[in-house]
Amino acid sequence: MFDIRVQAQRFDCGVELEALSQQRTDVGAVASFIGYVRDFNERPDVVALTLEHYPGMTEQQLRLIAEQAARRWPVLAATIIHRVGRMEPGDPIVLVAVASAHRQAAFDACNFIMDYLKTEAPFWKKEHTRTGDYWVSSRESDTLAAQRWEKTDV
């Protein structure tokens, strides 16, 4: 039911989204999010970034987050693919896609998984710019985004 991958290679969004509803007729909605490398962040002129992870723990945390989402919403299937290594502006970093019978559950579960991925999955970004390299700091807004799910009743 969950397809969780941490990999260096690019992914094909079309193939991944189709796979979620293939050979089944109970899926009424697939919601997805794709994150890309931006050419600006804490500094302008980002030329590349390197993503590091904690092999073993990262995959396990992503699975826990997907399981949590499936306990709150009627999720039929979910795919989480996160890339690691070096990427350049325009490259896709992450894909989260959720299949459900109805759109609201798919949208909410996808949003929830992304918010928790940002704050609880061990990934770290280092940005390479024309003026030097630095590790990206975590954002307060990401923590608040994840916290709002603690207050909301389903």
Partner: peptide, 24 residues
């Protein structure tokens, strides 16, 4: 597994320290 400052340790444990995560 995510732990707290108060988590007890025993011989053989793998303890990882890292900055707040910034994936996605």
């Amino acid at each position: 597994q995510m732990a707290e400052l108060s988590t007890a340790l025993k011989s053989g444990d793998e303890v990882a320290f890292f900055p707040p995560v910034t994936g996605g």
